[in-house]
């Protein structure tokens, strides 16, 4: 898995590429926690390059969406790929998290 972070206005975009599993999920957890600690609670997870996630990845998303919302922000998804969407659907996450076709739409949603 590879992570990269950039900002667009007041929104932080964390791009997650490759596979999320119990080995790689802690790295994502650290990256998202660092954003939240820095008071940056408007987060977009760019999943357009994420091919796979197990429940270990879901756990990190769930933790951080709770924390982001408690700080008045949110963690929103962008560009979810089919195999990742299957896991999000299976676990009922699509009803919890807001998901957008691409990063631009996810970033714009924070302005609404």
């Amino acid at each position: 898995m590879e992570l990269s972070t950039k900002s667009k206005g007041s929104v932080q975009i964390v791009s997650i590429n490759g596979s999320l599993d119990a080995l790689t999920a802690p790295e994502l957890a650290d990256a998202l926690a660092a954003e939240l600690r820095g008071g940056r609670a408007r987060l977009v997870a760019d999943l357009s390059g994420l091919e796979y996630t197990s429940s270990a990845g879901l756990r990190v998303l769930l933790n951080n969406v709770k924390d982001a919302r408690s700080q008045g922000g949110d963690l929103r998804l962008a560009g979810v790929q089919p195999n990742v969407k299957k896991v999000l659907d299976l676990s009922g996450f699509m009803s919890i998290m807001k998901s957008y076709a691409d990063v631009d739409a996810a970033v714009a949603s924070f302005a609404e």
Binding site: L58, L62, R69, S91, G92
Partner: peptide, 17 residues
Amino acid sequence: LKLPLAERPIGGMGMYI
């Protein structure tokens, strides 16, 4: 899966999947 976000337990998902 119908629990609101704040009450969702972390974990227990692996076996379910």
